[in-house]
Structures are given as C-alpha cells and as structure tokens.
Nucleic acid binder design. Structure first.
Ligand SMILES: [Mn+2]
Ligand SMILES: [Mn+2]
Ligand SMILES: [Zn+2]
Ligand SMILES: [Zn+2]
Lengths: 154, 154
DNA sequence: ACCATCAATGCAATCGAGTTGCATCTTTTA
DNA sequence: TAAAAGATGCAACTCGATTGCATTGATGGT
C-alpha cells in the first residue's frame, strides 16, 4: 500500500484517484454510481493490471460490497468507454487497467512468470516490422514480454 | 479440404501426415494409440491452429470417437513432448499446432479478426528489442499480429 | 424537494472450457 | 500369453464469465 497517508487512512494517491475517477466518469455519458467510482479509483491507483478477484478484494477492503456480476458489468462498461482496458493472459483470466495508465494507443505488456503480475509498458517501442506472408494485412500487434519483474529478479 | 485425393477419400497430405504422425509418436517415449495418432495427424494436416472443438469435429469426420477428456489429455501429452504447441487466444480457448509447423523456437502468430483463424508465422523476425524499465528481466516475447488473412482481406 | 424514467444492481441460474477421481480397458514387454 | 504400466471413458466438478429478471436508485425535469 504505497503513498503518503492523507486522512481517514486514505493515501494521497488514492485521493487523487478519487477525484480523477469522478471527473472521468462525469465526462463519460452514463451514471456515476458507487460501484463505478470504486472500480475506477482502484484501477487508477494500481500500477499493475488487476484481475476480477483482485478488484473484488480491493472493493471489500474499502468497506464496500459490490455483487460480482455488477463488477463484471462495471468493467465491461469502463472498457467500452475506453476508461479501462482489458488484457487476456495465459491463465484465461482478464486483467484490467485504467486506460490513462496505458498510453493512448498500442502498448506492450510485461508478465512476470514468478509473481504473475502484469504491467503496461510505455510505448510500442521499436515498432517491429514483421515480414508477413503475401496477402496478410496487419492491423495491430499484441506484444507481451514474459520474464521476471524487478521485485522477483532481485 | 486441400490436397489431391489419394484413396478412400484420404488426401495425399493426410497420408503424409499419417506416416509422419506414426513416426513421431514412435520416436517419443509413450504408447501409440488411435487417439494420439488421429490427433497428431489432424494437427500435422492443418495449416491453422485448431481448437479443442475443431479437433473433436475432425476426429468425428474420420469416423472415430474419442472422449473429450481423452482429447484434452492427448493434447496435453503432445505438448509436453513438444510434438504440439499451445496458443492462448483472446477468446480464452487454447489452440494447437503440430510443433514441426511452428519453427523450433520462438515465433509469432497471426490472428484474423474476421474468420478467427490463427496461423504460425515463420521466424521471430526483427526480434524487437524492447526498452524495458530498469530491473525487468525479459525471457521471451509473445507476439500476435491481429489483422485480416488473405482469404478475408481479398 | 419530488417524481417519473430507465439505467444499474442483486440474485439465481446457466454456460463453457478445462480438470479430477476412479474403474475399466489396451498397449507394451517379458 | 500374462502381467504391469499406461491410456481411456464416464461422471462429477471447478472456475471465470454470462444471462434473465425482478428490484433499486441516479438523474433530469417539474
Ligand atoms: Mn496495458
Ligand atoms: Mn505457433
Ligand atoms: Zn514478479
Ligand atoms: Zn480470415
């Protein structure tokens, strides 16, 4: 739990996320509900992509109670409005990130094979040019680097 | 269904696959069973990566009957022995390829967003060097190009 | 402030890919 | 050909995710 304590056990990072979440939700056409606020705040506050379960736990830790189906629908809603983005991992579990942490367009991901964490990498970097066979029309590249995160490599 | 007809409605490609499958299975330590033969033949005969369901259908088309659990276990067995390799797609369904079609080591995949087919791409190509943040230790890159296959782009 | 509207929620049931336990059958080896 | 190891079939199960439907609640207009 990083960040300097602010008040009521809420860190400054969380306070930032709170106001930003409210602002982002107001901007998007749709209702501002406790569930949407909490989920977006949690995503904004996290450096790593979070699974449905991890978000559920974070919600509980805030003393809130959101039905798991509602959580699925909130996440779907956020993704549709580009407030979050969804990552398919090899364990067949979706993970979510606040979209602003993920740089606007394409970006790669890093997956730690030890702790399982997934983080967004800045920029598409050396935009690999792939020699595709004749006739294949590329639209986007999905790139995941597997390895060890700083914490696990240390 | 590509390939020149050979006999009994079996194409030459399938005949090739049959002998190659038998040969590969004998080489690997383990029993040569009808299920393993059929599955490996089907994988060898396919240009695209096949889902569990697609393999099941192909087995039925051959007049064979293999339990779905057995199919899962056969696929697992083939992957463990590097006779096949497994691809995680965004629809959370595993797809399989005969390993010899996939070049030995790392290789990228192409996913057609229209027909859903997944094919292995030759070589890792311009092995993109990613500018990872400090401390991240890359081990392998997983690359999928999304776009239109020749058939769907035409 | 109040209400009416309709989007959002909760709950139970359901789906679908994949897994596990165990009894039975087959391949292989001696 | 028989024993032993290994593979298969079946039923039950796990788990992430989805659907249907009745109820609740956020919001805009009064
Ligand atoms: Mn991302
Ligand atoms: Mn491949
Ligand atoms: Zn790690
Ligand atoms: Zn296609």
């Amino acid at each position: 739990m990083p960040g300097i304590e602010c008040c009521n056990g809420v860190t400054m990072a969380e306070a930032d996320a709170q106001s930003r979440a409210r602002q982002l939700l107001s901007a998007a056409a749709g209702r501002v509900t406790p569930a949407r606020l909490a989920v977006l705040e949690i995503l904004l506050d996290s450096a790593t992509a979070l699974s449905h379960h991890e978000i559920e736990d974070a919600i509980e830790r805030r003393g809130l109670d959101v039905d798991r189906v509602t959580l699925y629908r909130v996440l779907e809603w956020l993704v549709e409005r580009d407030l979050a983005h969804r990552i398919a991992a090899e364990d067949r579990v979706w993970r979510f990130n606040a979209a602003d942490r993920a740089h606007a367009g394409e970006h790669a991901h890093f997956h730690c094979t030890q702790c399982g964490q997934i983080v967004c990498l800045d920029g598409p970097d050396s935009a690999a040019t792939f020699a595709l066979p004749e006739g294949y029309q590329p639209e986007r590249a999905e790139i995941t680097i597997h390895g060890r995160c700083p914490r696990c490599a240390g």
